[in-house]
Design a protein around this nucleic acid. Sequence first.
DNA 1: AATATTATCTAACAGCGTTAAATTATTTAT
DNA 2: ATAAATAATTTAACGCTGTTAGATAATATT
Lengths: 197, 197
Amino acid sequence: MASKDRILRLKEETRNNILDAACKIVKEEGWQGLSLRKIADAIEYTAPIIYEYFANKEAILQELTKQGYLVLNKDLISAKQSKENPTEQLEAMWLAYWNFAFENKEMYQLMFGVEMTTCHMVAFPEVQTPYDLFTETIIEVMGDKNADDDTICQKYYTYYSVVHGLISINLVGNGLPNDMNLQILKDAIIGITRSLN
Amino acid sequence: MASKDRILRLKEETRNNILDAACKIVKEEGWQGLSLRKIADAIEYTAPIIYEYFANKEAILQELTKQGYLVLNKDLISAKQSKENPTEQLEAMWLAYWNFAFENKEMYQLMFGVEMTTCHMVAFPEVQTPYDLFTETIIEVMGDKNADDDTICQKYYTYYSVVHGLISINLVGNGLPNDMNLQILKDAIIGITRSLN
DNA sequence: AATATTATCTAACAGCGTTAAATTATTTAT
DNA sequence: ATAAATAATTTAACGCTGTTAGATAATATT
């Protein structure tokens, strides 16, 4: 029966409404301001109805985290595709990572534990993707040098540390002047990239 | 009267008991597990008594943050004093910073907003000290080259980003293998230091 | 139209930070 | 030493949180 489908569609819609409402509240009031009752209010239901769609609050955060990774991974892929040269690809990807963080500050906080508790329950596959994309490109930059996995991994975390660190510093405090940020970011990336060859 | 002093001493002791109890609870259950009622329980009082010693919970966190900075600053100073050469001093200081983070994980989280909301209310002077200590040493490493403040600041944040980033990554997730951590850390520090001359 | 199923809500629980008022303990003054 | 004043501490409550169970309303099935 088609009515089944319609109902399923409605349920799916409500589920999305919950996630959207959560996003909106967080953007307006931060993670501290998010509560199930506020979400319920926004979607014009009472709080317990949320448990028909999510096991608990944590499950909502997990779903939002997943969505965050989907956007980030998309951004990283299109950044890579925007360049030909692997070195330029790598730089573009880290810049895309940087931009994602500031265009989606709250998401970034949730995904990476900046001023906010992450939900590292069941790690879903999307979490692995940035690592795969970056290390893949790092290998390309290094060329035919048959570097072992440990070296690749180490190089990745060197990039990751400085980029994530700089992002965190900006998200937590008042932030640095914008030009200084970009200078540090690009200098660091160039420096690490140089160490790849 | 001497009894006044005794009472003042007792009040001071209770204040410290509150802070100590908070530390103990956090070490055992994490920041999520900390509550005023648990603190009160630990010091064998009821919850409202805490408001005789602190304006609110945030004030307790602020005091703990301050204490954290006092320890960190002491560590940084004694690290600097342990070496003669400015370059070695700088390396020893960042290593001390690193060690502080892992010997006082919860404190570090509170002070720098890793998986935990910081209390950046009224910035107290101790927060500035690490910056002063590091930049001072950076200037010494750079020698007579009359570098402007912006350059010094930028170099500091380059160090800071990679060290804080790597610490954050370790505190949030499962953490990297220990030898890889130290290799990344030391390589990064050496790399940035080389860029100073 | 009566029954079964689903959707939704109301009410409640235990915990949280916080406040005001009542109570107990201690100090001061007579 | 007793009464009054002050200080220390507790009890009770408020509004908030996530969450659960049970009652009610709406819909679907027979």
